Simulated scan of single mutants.
Amino acid sequence: MSTTTKTLMAVLIAVAASQAMGQESPWLLRARAVHLDPVDHSSPLGGTGAADRIGVSSKTIPEIDISYFFAPQLAAELVLTYPQKHKVYLDGARIGSFRHLPPTLSLQYHFLPAASFRPYVGMGVNYTRISSVKLLDGAGGLEKDSWGASVQAGFDYRLDERWSLNVDVKKITIRSDVFVGGSMASRAKIDPVLFGIGAGYRF
């Protein structure tokens, strides 16, 4: 093998190694603190009277999400947390509580994957499981499952090869029928807006 060929091969190997080291992992783990703010819309109780009498408490919750990048600009994100407890109000007076678990799967488009500031948008589907319902001393109930759409926008700010800061806003559709004495009394639209801030780690 000639000296020129050996030199060319060495250069190609060095370039390939450099490119491999420069590629980011397709996996991104984020941890966020998220403020959940329900819209509190509901139909009139029993079909008559005023609407929007039922309210659900807002709260700040922890959230973990795992993203996989199919390409530098395209990723799937799975959002996870543990069952969260919310208070329920009727005309401002507390009437009970429930817990909900709202995993959300989204497809995201990242506009500037090679930059330090990386904005993105996404849309997906949310499944919410409602449990531990305690309303009106046992006389009230809620539908156990809710499927709905989700939309989001946010950005990652890269700090180094592994770490980044994240800001994210989501709108999720969560609906539930409200029962009193076994009969449907109202349709509640929780539909929260979630504002989150946290950190991301590429691994």
Rank of each mutant, 00 (worst) to 15 (best):
P62Q: 04
R30I: 10
S42W: 09
L74V: 11
S58N: 13
L36Y: 06
S67G: 02
S42I: 05
A51S: 15
G55C: 03
T48E: 05
A31I: 13
W27Y: 15
L29Q: 13
G49Q: 08
S57D: 02
A75V: 12
S43H: 03
R32D: 05
G47M: 02
A50I: 06
Q73S: 15
T48K: 15
Q73H: 12
S25A: 03
R53N: 11
S42F: 08
R30T: 10
A76Q: 07
A31V: 11
D37H: 13
S58K: 11
T48L: 14
T48I: 09
A33L: 14
P38N: 01
S67R: 09
V39L: 12
A31S: 13
V39G: 04
L36A: 13
L29H: 14
G47E: 07
D65V: 00
S57H: 00
G55S: 14
A71K: 13
V39N: 08
H35T: 13
A51I: 12
D65S: 11
L28N: 06
I61W: 02
P26L: 05
Y68P: 09
S67P: 01
L74E: 08
G46L: 10
L36T: 14
S58C: 08
D40A: 10
P72V: 06
T60V: 01
P26H: 00
L36G: 11
P62R: 00
A76Y: 01
H41A: 15
P26M: 00
Q73N: 14
L45I: 05
G47C: 01
P44G: 02
